[in-house]
Amino acid sequence: MTTLALVMIVKNEERHLSRCLQSVKGIVDEMVIVDTGSTDRTKEIAYAFGAKVFDFEWVNDFSTARNYALEKSTSDWNFVLDADEYIMNDCGSVIRNFIEKNDKVIGRIKRIDEFIQDGEKRYAQSYLSRLLPKGVKYVGRVHEQVNSDLPRENLDIEVYHDGYVYTDKTDRNLKLLLLELERDPLNDYVLYQVGKQYKLRQQLQQAESYFEKSYNLVALKSWYRHSLIIDYLYTIIGNKSFEKGLKLIETERDRFADSPDFHFACGLFYMDLIFSNVNKYIHLFPLIEQSFLRCLEIGDTDKYDSVKGTGSFLASYNLGVFHEVLGNTDKAISFYQQAANEQYERAIKRLELLR
């Protein structure tokens, strides 16, 4: 029988660990948990679930800790989770079928990230390589990546992650990323991740600088390029670097014609651009509506890492705002209703006011 281990690294995770282990206990054959210095009940909780617990002295390097944990696994396959993640769907048979039939493929889970934006909860989804055949290891001091040329397959495994809501890890991550950048200053992925940390800290000038450096280096077919461009474009909006934004959109429009997140960011960009100088940019006014309509044409998608709603209720809501501002009340109500049908609270409130 092919065996499967849950492999984790943890520190002071008593708040989340039981939830994570409970979600996976009926699926795995062993639990390997490496603790990097907990001072709470983390290890006690792990032992209660029958986990093998190992201590590891933290050396400011996530891949080193991950690889130590993988070495402690005795199973044929390893399923990597963090403590602030947990399995949402009934995927035990999916995992079992995959590992029984494969030995040279890496499985990717769909992770749903909860985060706060504009004072409300939003949900982003991305596919991550987490189901690993024995021998596959990690590289990278932080935001570590699976180091393998094996093909990857998206699986029907849904994992929820709410760590961004409860913990601010930007200071820790930025410190480690800058150390990594000293070692490899032209690493496009690390440059991107540094930009992300500055963006999370609302230090948008620094973020834009690092995103630009990454953008100038990243390969056209790189797996994270779409996410980089979306983050770069939102940062450009925040900094009002409008001429740079126009050039970026023109360059990437055809390449991401099927991305609702790209067109959603474009719609927001054109709104800010036009109101920054109406006389200069008024000719671009129709592009606001066109961008959000294109989002609805595409719909929400699994093709790219994406924020839920950019292809549905968020785009409908913005079209409602667009037409309400223009005085097209009937059209506004129609788009607000589309968003309200998906239980989008802001649209429901606008409908109440308009009616």
Rank of each mutant, 00 (worst) to 15 (best):
N277L: 05
L132R: 01
Y189N: 05
A207Y: 05
Y166V: 14
V142G: 02
G245I: 11
N318F: 12
N154A: 08
L132H: 02
F313G: 02
T3L: 04
S23M: 09
T3M: 04
Q203I: 05
F115W: 10
V194M: 07
L284W: 04
C295D: 05
R255N: 10
L354K: 11
K244A: 12
L131P: 03
I229Y: 08
A69P: 02
K349A: 12
G311Y: 07
R141G: 04
L319F: 03
D103H: 15
V136M: 03
Y344D: 05
Y86G: 08
N279Y: 07
D231V: 02
M1G: 14
L293C: 07
S129I: 08
A5Y: 00
Q197M: 15
R122L: 11
D84A: 10
F54W: 05
D29T: 06
D84W: 03
I282Y: 00
V53I: 07
S312H: 12
L268D: 00
S306K: 06
K52A: 12
F79Y: 12
Q197W: 01
Q203R: 15
R172T: 14
K331D: 13
E144D: 15
K247P: 06
Q197E: 15
E30Q: 09
L179V: 07
K175I: 09
K121Y: 07
G267E: 01
F49A: 10
V53E: 02
L326Y: 09
T329W: 00
T235R: 02
I95D: 00
C295V: 11
W223L: 13
I348G: 04
E44S: 13
H323M: 09
Y317T: 05
E44A: 13
N67D: 13
N147I: 00
N60W: 13
M88R: 11
G311W: 08
E352I: 14
G238F: 06
Q125K: 14
Y344H: 12
S214R: 07
K72H: 13
E182D: 14
M31N: 03
F313C: 02
S312R: 11
I109N: 10
L233H: 04
I230A: 06
G327M: 06
R122N: 09
G107C: 04
I288E: 01
L319Q: 02
V194W: 07
K331N: 12
I33S: 01
R130Y: 00
V194H: 05
K43P: 03
N279E: 12
K280R: 13
N279I: 11
I288K: 01
F56P: 01
H323Q: 11
K308V: 14
L353K: 15
E252L: 03
R253C: 11
R108M: 15
L314Y: 06
L351H: 10
